[in-house]
Design a protein around this nucleic acid. Structure first.
Length: 501
RNA sequence: GCCGAGGUAGCUCAACGGUAGAGCAAUCGCUUCGUAAGCGAUAGGUUGUGGGUUCGAAUCCCAUCCUCGGCUCCA
């Protein structure tokens, strides 16, 4: 079989020049160079073995690929291996389990995560952020059902372009119903539910919609790749003239979010269709592709949005901007997406009345700046190593008593902290305070208040931050004056003096 | 879906053909202690599931489900 592959490579050689390398009795077709012996490689370690499709095509056989890493120095190799070990500690699956964020259950099914109470807190904080941001940006909110008749996806084109990623239909009342893999067709129906005038546009329609996609079993990966997901979705229906401004407003929304989450490494990937890609998508409308792609690129250039072009990765209905981010472990993810769609609104017969008494198909921008809760929270777990900023922390303050004598005061303090809107709890078990601190550190709780007899007597707080800093004799008013702005301004790090008080 | 590796107590792991075990967590006592593990006791498992081989299976074989490393695909 190896010979067949080598012959195929030879046939593809552009200039017909064949080179080969020999090592003892082994001769190999290779562009080269080869090394004489492994001593010349430097410091290396073979890391993993895996099947890989011949020439990356899943229709073709697999060969075994051996992976390894090599470095100039032993220290560099060891540093790399150490980094991999450290990275494992930040794995969102490990942290998700340790911190009680989510879990999977065999009776629920693969790729169907359940949010635990602490995960649900994060989900709801993110939703609140999105809803506020979108309300400020002039979005309206809608809500749509999770299933619909087959007809909808025939109209949208999903059945012909996306069927293998949809769950099989359920049949009843003589109809076939599908779980929705995306929210757009439902939103299109809402747009089409009443007469629209050019005066109504743009219409920015948002929903944290739950979608279901039948991802291949081998593609499932913790929270990053799941089969049920809640998407920070919205569709902006606008005129051609409004497109650039709307599109750039979405890009600016991304940048605003990156700042909030401290995401520094990202790439806006502009996915277009390769010329040959035109044939397999909407073959009848190649001019539409060209038109929307040009439009997007003009907007990117005029808005000075840095981007990288990537051919043949567009959605079936149009070009898109994917936001690629890298977790600290070095995994790359499409975290968010921004897609342009001329085609599907047309298929749905969506129109608005123009000033000239005519009818025009609106342009639709699909956007999901926070992607899905699943992937975004998976990413944030790795990004923050579980040390969520205060506003996202499931438990924000824990009160630790030193002896039973403080239990009453601790409960009273907890009550006041909760009244201030903080997520607070108390550990009044009979363990030593060192043990309680260890436990709270493990849960990555941002603030610990150690309450002993001296504190109760003085009426002040002994505050411990999760980075180990301690501040004695803090008044409750001072504590709230520091913590509440940290929460409300969604600060990434607490504003406390560096020196140990 | 494909190639490969794994599933043992809530968690992390041991036992690898001969009665399933440890640490942590849990529960109950004792302890009342000042910034990352106080002490003791108790309880907890049809070894993912279903078949098979064997006097005997967590251990070997087959099937299946799930997870992991990749491939392919993607928010």
């Amino acid at each position: 079989r190896g010979e067949t592959y080598k012959l195929e490579l030879i046939a593809d050689l552009a200039d017909g020049t064949i080179s080969y390398y020999s090592h003892a009795s082994f001769t190999d077709l290779c562009r080269g160079p080869h090394v004489e012996h492994t001593g010349k490689i430097g410091f290396f370690k073979l890391t993993t073995v895996a099947g890989a499709y011949w020439r990356g095509d899943e229709k073709r056989p697999q060969l075994q690929r051996i992976y390894g890493v090599a470095f100039d120095t032993k220290e560099a190799l060891e540093a790399h291996l150490h980094m991999l070990e450290e990275a494992k500690k930040r794995d969102h699956r490990k942290l998700g389990k340790e911190l009680g964020i989510y879990f999977f259950d065999d009776d629920i099914g693969p790729g169907l995560p359940l949010w635990l109470p602490r995960g649900a807190v994060i989900v709801e904080e993110l939703e609140a952020l999105a809803k506020k941001t979108e309300a400020d940006a002039g979005y309206v909110r809608v809500r749509t059902p999770h299933i619909c008749k087959e007809k909808l996806y025939e109209t949208s084109g999903h059945l012909s372009h996306y069927k293998e990623s949809m769950f099989p239909p359920m049949e009843f009342d003589g109809e076939r119903y599908y779980l929705k893999p995306m929210n757009c067709p439902h939103h299109h129906k809402i747009f089409g539910s009443s007469l629209r005038s050019y005066r109504d546009l743009p219409i920015r329609m948002a929903e944290y919609g739950t979608c279901y996609r039948y991802e291949q079993s081998g593609e499932l990966f913790g929270l990053m790749r799941v089969r049920s997901m809640q998407m920070n979705d919205a569709h902006i229906y606008c005129t051609l003239e409004q497109f650039e401004e709307e599109f750039l407003a979405v890009c600016r929304m991304y940048l605003g979010y990156f700042k909030i989450f401290g995401i520094e490494k990202y790439l806006m990937r502009f996915s277009t269709h390769a010329p040959e890609g035109l044939g397999k998508k909407y073959v009848d409308e190649p001019e539409l592709w060209k038109k929307t792609e040009d439009m997007v690129e003009r907007a990117l250039v005029s808005g000075k949005v840095p981007y990288a072009k990537s051919a043949n990765e567009a959605a079936f209905y149009g070009p898109k901007i994917d936001v690629q981010v890298w977790s600290v472990i070095g995994r790359e993810f499409s975290l968010a997406t921004n897609q342009v769609d001329f085609a599907v609104p047309k298929r749905f017969g969506l129109v608005y009345h123009t000033a000239e008494h005519g009818e025009q198909t609106p342009l639709c921008i699909h956007r999901a700046p926070l992607g899905t809760h699943e992937r975004f929270i998976g990413f944030l777990l790795e990004h923050f190593a579980g040390n969520f900023p205060l506003w996202l922390s499931p438990v924000q303050v824990r009160v630790l008593t030193i002896t039973e004598g403080q239990n009453e005061a601790a409960r009273a303090l907890e009550k006041r902290l909760k009244a201030a809107g903080l997520r607070a709890d108390v550990n009044d078990t009979s363990h030593k305070v060192g043990y309680k601190i260890r436990e709270a550190q493990g849960e990555k709780i941002p603030y610990m208040i150690v309450l002993g007899p001296k504190d109760v007597e003085a009426g002040t707080l002994a505050v411990r931050l999760r980075d180990g800093r301690q501040f004695m004799g803090v008044t409750e008013a001072d504590f709230l004056a520091k913590v509440l702005p940290e929460r409300d301004e969604k600060r990434l790090s607490p504003a406390w003096p560096q020196a140990l008080a």
